[in-house]
Design a protein around this nucleic acid. Sequence first.
DNA 1: GTCTATAAGCCGATAGAC
DNA 2: GTCTATCGGCTTATAGAC
Lengths: 218, 218
Amino acid sequence: MRNRQYRQGITCFMSTIRERNKELILRAASEEFADKGFAATKTSDIAAKAGLPKPNVYYYFKSKENLYREVLESIIEPILQASTPFNADGEPSEVLGGYIRSKIHISRDLPFASKVFASEIMHGAPHLSADLVEQLNGQARHNIDCIQTWIDRGQIAPIDPHHLMFSIWAATQTYADFDWQITAITGKAKLDEEDYEAAAQTIIRLVLKGCEPDRRAE
Amino acid sequence: MRNRQYRQGITCFMSTIRERNKELILRAASEEFADKGFAATKTSDIAAKAGLPKPNVYYYFKSKENLYREVLESIIEPILQASTPFNADGEPSEVLGGYIRSKIHISRDLPFASKVFASEIMHGAPHLSADLVEQLNGQARHNIDCIQTWIDRGQIAPIDPHHLMFSIWAATQTYADFDWQITAITGKAKLDEEDYEAAAQTIIRLVLKGCEPDRRAE
DNA sequence: GTCTATAAGCCGATAGAC
DNA sequence: GTCTATCGGCTTATAGAC
């Protein structure tokens, strides 16, 4: 009984095993895809890492590409969510600071999917649907418009809003993408809570100071 | 005569054809590897893009991996070169500004190799020799030490030097790595000279303002 | 030195037993 | 629903003609 649920009079297998296996495969896949990229990843390695036979991967996900897309799309929602603070009526420093923190948290909490996403974008997003691409770009344009509004109102310095956004993305994303380089240079096997906090504070400082209106001769 | 050079008494073919073909293949390879990544790139596509038959690729470069390594290593020298301004006795704003400009120029002038390098680092540098890795990391540590010295001397604000370097790398590298996203959002098919100049100025502003010592109540 | 034609091996995907 | 055993296609790499 424990493994079954009866719904609408039809015997419906909502087996815990199914959910558990899908989860194991997704987790293994996100690590493998993040580590090697789509083409270099072998489904047999994903299966091995998940502790399951290879056909299970195909049974649950139909194809390697499908599995990849599930990993890839799992990061879209958090990314879009991170932009919610952007609102022209918000306080620029609050909005930008909140955004930077959200993006750093994504790199910290979802490092594998985050890396898969970055790799996908680097190669021209061949697996992303036009719809999702448009959502992401629309969001980006909205954020940039918001910054432009602050500039027009004189709330922040007339910094180029496109390049400001690119810098913020890059600086926050880098903690997921280039973790290998970062751990090699800092000498730490893994960044801890304080490191991410220091990263966020450094980026926030750069951005907020950079956005401060220039001082006139007073 | 034009196609041959006699050296040490041995007929030595320094044929223009050889040099030209190697160059064609290298150029095609850097574009393909940048676009698709190592594993997803087919040597037949490289040959086609170079306008040569596939066996020529193997004749000149022996293996796909060898060819990849040549593309990859072509970017190391420019990267190391960009760090030459770093010197604790230099003026921080000059050094940092010069470094940012050099890194932006690498993204602009060597976008393909730059992307190949980024992708390689993202995946844990499986094709880079330990020696080169050590050179790059040593350089990075030197730059960070240099920033720390400025902080100790009170020349710049006590910003975290590691995170400052990570932000600079990320913000400059992003113009090569995420060109697809950048052109999608700016709406330009290709960034022009002015765009790169604006990018450099924006990043320099963020970094220099961020490094300014905090004002005390005056 | 150049290129056609082919070998060898790997990996995504599945048939079919349990 | 699960997994062993295998196929078929694709890609690197090369043998050998020119």
